[in-house]
Design a protein around this nucleic acid. Sequence first.
DNA 1: ATGAAAGCGCTAACAG
DNA 2: CTGTTAGCGCTTTCAT
Lengths: 338, 338
Amino acid sequence: MHNIRKPPTMADVAHRAGVSPMTVSRAFKREASVSRETREAVLRAADELGYVFDSTASNLRSQRTDFIAVTIPSINNANFADTVRALSDGVSERGLQILLGYTNYDVQEEERLVEQLLRRKPEAIVVTGGKHTPRTRKLLTNAGIPVIETWDLPEEPIGHVVGFSNAQAVREMVDHFVAVGYRNIAFIGGDASRDTRGADRRAGFIAAMKDHGLDAPRLIAAGPPPISMREGANAMGQLLERFPDTDAVICVSDLSAYGAITECQRRGIAVPEKIAIGGFGDYEIGAICVPSLTTINAFASEIGGKTAKLILDVLDGKLGEPGRVTIRPDLILRQSSL
Amino acid sequence: MHNIRKPPTMADVAHRAGVSPMTVSRAFKREASVSRETREAVLRAADELGYVFDSTASNLRSQRTDFIAVTIPSINNANFADTVRALSDGVSERGLQILLGYTNYDVQEEERLVEQLLRRKPEAIVVTGGKHTPRTRKLLTNAGIPVIETWDLPEEPIGHVVGFSNAQAVREMVDHFVAVGYRNIAFIGGDASRDTRGADRRAGFIAAMKDHGLDAPRLIAAGPPPISMREGANAMGQLLERFPDTDAVICVSDLSAYGAITECQRRGIAVPEKIAIGGFGDYEIGAICVPSLTTINAFASEIGGKTAKLILDVLDGKLGEPGRVTIRPDLILRQSSL
DNA sequence: ATGAAAGCGCTAACAG
DNA sequence: CTGTTAGCGCTTTCAT
């Protein structure tokens, strides 16, 4: 036997099993009409030959790849990971597979990524966020497949949406903080230009403060997103020095908020007695740290699960018009605030 | 214009640009020999038609997909995310794209996943860990593409390896703990059957204790992997009740170790004065929490980066025999231990 | 630098 | 339930 020969094809399997290639093809599908004995004979022949089904040929001929393309800002983020996992689990039942890429919080990178993903001919594409370059919008609009924007409520959606208002979510935290008596409230976030969800949260903060008749001069930019725990800690240090009268801080994520808590611990500043802290995203750290962290649950897994359901419905033709699934984030009160 | 017509192909672009399809194909490649004017005319025609290159056809004809298949236990783990990001960055320069799947710490799930991934005809496959089902081993061995096992040093590697000894890494922490005076050392990990890296760490713990003439009865199983912060905290509670004389704990990951720290904080037990705690993985939490966490840096990003380099070398034919890249984890001493 | 012909391995479409 | 024919959209190969 030559070991350097080409891998076996369906024709080889068909020959060995004494059937036609078409029957082999059918034997590899769940629903296809093949007699039990024939299927078993085919699968046995395939196994003996070490045959591996070739999706690339199947993809071209059937014009189906069973890919769902997904873009997320960062692969190293528990919120987006939760969304992707739920999405992946939801569509895998139907044999659909996630084709994942990350944008590094950069719309130019998103444009390159979207173009690359569309070349693979996915059945649908899920993007995180509702802000894109004009070319990205055009590519998505003309792709001829379902487009789902998530983690945001875009003003002019491209297609379907499964998301929430980042501004509104933060507004509710501000409302609560003001109601319990905080006035000199600060916001720690990333440089606004890149992370549009972070920018929306900051805008929601400023607008809410204004509605309460409060100024919002206490804005700390902690660097380009994503903001790490360390950067949250550094930002807290800056805040304490520049605005020592601050009585509460809202952070763009739980990670930066936890960093802020640790900075207070290192400086001997009591949380929440001297300063209250709120985060965003309901990461595990916030539930378990001491003091535990007041935060906003954006239901990352639900976003993924509902996106999966939406995709399946659209592919089944069950949806006449673009879907609009609005998530309502939950304010979770814990020990880090009154 | 009909909007429901089929998307344009290279033939359509060729027709519009007044060239042959072959020239269009060449115009879309970086290196191909096409005159500047011709290429510009082709790309203009493509843009006007809204043409999107079809990878599925290219994949079949050229027998190249430019996919690198990767399996990780969980998509929601900062260590594996770091590896995947570095790997992705390393291979993307050459136009290679990651095709990612997760096994949920289950070798049966790994088998299904590997089979599914191989059908997509990747250029190489990277798996996390060195323990597999017999069928997975067979599939990988016969795949005819480079196989790279990572995050482990398998006794019988399938192909290439980029990893480290989990047992040895924990042994070094035990050696240090014993050297500074701890004797009643416990280990908190997951149920052994599933997370083989976790099991290796526990085995390394037990063996190291034995070499120091110490028994290792203090083993807390915190549930099926991955072990969360919460499960680490619960395990710490159990440990304190069942073995109150414990003077140090080594946890299977920084996440469970941080949970253990918080449990001590809730119970008013001083770390490290009453009990020392060590983790694994050098997650950001361990560097910033108070007290900061003694841990082991397994160089997750380096694993990804070196795997990328290995893949590129193999695909370039620069490697005659299987590559063996051994990472040496670093013990990082911080405030949670003496 | 460009073109013509052939075919990658599978499956849609149709036939029986 | 099974088989035959044709072709998915590109790129390999060979010309010029």
